[in-house]
Design a binder for these strands. Structure first.
Lengths: 238, 238
DNA sequence: CGACCACTTGATCATGCTCAACTAGCGTGG
DNA sequence: CCACGCTAGTTGAGCATGATCAAGTGGTCG
């Protein structure tokens, strides 16, 4: 994805914060008005194309960010090229691992996205100063831990069909537009494979299988409709 | 494991704390002398036999604990019986998920163990009061998250041989007795299988395979020697 | 129109699962 | 003290799920 690029849009200000997706999210929701405006003065809005790397595995953590639009995948790669997606983050999640110098994973935009970038030192100072921010980040870490463990069960013990159904269920839960359950896949087949510990061929076969069984409709390559959520849920044993 | 039982030993006191494995661990290391003695007055030492469940999946969290001796496995089971170990905790780790009412996983002693049990309300109050305790638990959560993600890579992308080698490596790292690298497996073959997302037969075959290749020696069913740690590490691509 | 890319589909292969027999260790009771 | 049963682990034979390799499809962009 060498066409992928990122672009600095505007210097964040408290004015920009008012209409921000992440205004009441994990980080910004925990700050006082004064802190929010200080953080805003030192933040940058970045527009990030799908496929663009935000943090490289093994690189130094020199900033943190909020996702303000789009989906970000957290990824681990092995020296021989095998890779595994170990987390998906949706707006308005926080991305980064405070107080650790080197990142053990990469973060990459799965869809076109926008992030709000904070300087490392400022955010770390605020975490130390702000009880509520500390608590809030702790809570997000625990939620991510639960999600990671749920996914370990999927990776270790579910069949290919159950894995694919689990992913669709997960994405539907985040897309949830009231009644209808139609959504865009934020991931390509290759990325789905990397998330589920499968190959792209198996993912493709399981998707067509779910389609033939009438559990999903594949409107087009990236758009799925689930006529009956319960039928999908039934594909996920346990 | 219906022989497994747990037994309350003594009411913890600050006297007992002085020689405790977990005295400078995640929880107790973050407390003031006064808090430590208050927590001690309300804590119970419990001796827990291998196989005994400490927290049941789906149960209410009514207490937290420190592991003061032994190894605890965190486990998820599906309604059809398939199960996956999603974490191993060693003394002096903290066990429990603060501020969440229902446990999404079970905790079970893998070896004979001892834990120090804290009442829920007291510990939660101390977390709210104590900046350093909050920070310390946050740090443990982030470490567990890293470990979980590392394990996701193993579950999703490594071969059976690599998986078994990874587990031996993990256990060796925790047993590390200076020079020699000999250790007791805290897990049965069935538990290893549940940790690695394999069957016990595959685990057994891979262990004999590693033995035949000279990478490990199986002194007896639970005791392993690794003559050359590097040779073991080479089995883990990545 | 053609090249390219992401995806699908098919045929064959192999890793790891299933089912089954066998072994070793260990505690219990005759 | 040995026979017995029980548990945990090992080993083998055959099978199936999902991987690999390869060809084909469809949409997009120049």
């Amino acid at each position: 994805m060498d066409v992928a690029r990122s672009e600095v849009l505007v210097i964040g200000t408290s004015v920009a914060c008012r209409s921000c997706q992440a205004r009441h999210g994990v980080v910004c929701g925990a700050l006082s008005a004064g802190q929010l405006s200080e953080l805003g003065r030192h933040s940058l809005r970045r527009k990030v194309d799908a496929g663009c790397e935000i943090i490289a595995q093994g690189s130094e953590n020199s900033f943190y960010s909020n996702i303000t639009r789009g989906v970000v995948k957290l990824c681990k790669v092995m020296s021989d090229g095998r890779q595994q997606i170990v987390g998906l983050q949706f707006a308005p999640d926080f991305v980064g691992r405070p107080f650790v110098r080197e990142s053990t994973l990469s973060a990459e935009a799965a869809t076109d996205a926008e992030i709000c970038v904070f300087p490392r030192n400022l955010l770390e100072r605020m975490i130390l100063e702000t009880r509520e921010l500390q608590r809030s980040l702790h809570a997000q870490a625990l939620n991510e831990l639960d999600a990671a463990r749920e996914w370990m069960l999927t990776l270790g013990r579910r069949t290919a069909e159950e894995k694919v159904a689990s992913l669709l269920h997960l994405i539907a839960a985040h897309a949830e537009t009231a009644t209808s359950t139609a959504f865009d896949l934020p991931l390509s087949r290759a990325e789905i494979a990397d998330f589920l510990g499968l190959t792209i061929e198996t993912v493709s076969r399981q998707l067509t299988r779910l389609r033939k069984e009438g559990v999903i409709r594949i409107e087009n390559i990236r758009h799925i409709t689930v006529p009956d959520m319960d039928a999908l849920a039934k594909k996920i044993s346990g």
